[in-house]
Amino acid sequence: MIECPSCGRKHRPGTLFCSECGVYLPTGGPLRTEPLPEEELPISRANPWASEPAQGRGETPPAPLRIEVVSTGRIIQLPSTPEIHIGRLDAAHGIFPDLDLTSDGGLESGVSRHHCKIHQRGSTYLVEDVGSANGTFLNGQRLTPYLPHVLKNGDELQLGHILLKVIIENPSDAQ
């Protein structure tokens, strides 16, 4: 039998969630994101007003968005949903980001479970930090949390220590 670390209820082996308190039994709790030392991160801040979209009113949806994780070379085609969440998977708390950076060393690099999100407005993509522990950086400038910034093809996004490259183009255009 396995015992729930939170409420002590006993479950048969193989049970994944405690029926009493809802805790994810294999880990019993989440892995927390530790703050990184400040000096390791860029200091300049992006001006949210400078990049507020005036052109974002177009009706045509933007080209598909792909993200390249620079350190591992992994390229991910993101879903064309209105909102794309980037962070770290935490099943215990039901956090299932569209782009999970766990396998790219997300935890050690200071990526929060909810780190940032990208939404689609008109024909542009906007990136928004959602109060992450170590911040989101657009081309080396720290984003003010909860203020959206326009994303362009070739932009560099940094989440904690992880560097991402933004690719916005139709796969056919690339050839």
Binding site: L16, F17, C18, G22, Y24, L89, A91, H93, G94, F96
Partner: peptide
């Protein structure tokens, strides 16, 4: 992940 996601909500 699909099992975890679904099961956490069913729970």
């Amino acid at each position: 992940a699909a099992i975890l996601g679904t099961l956490s909500k069913i729970t």
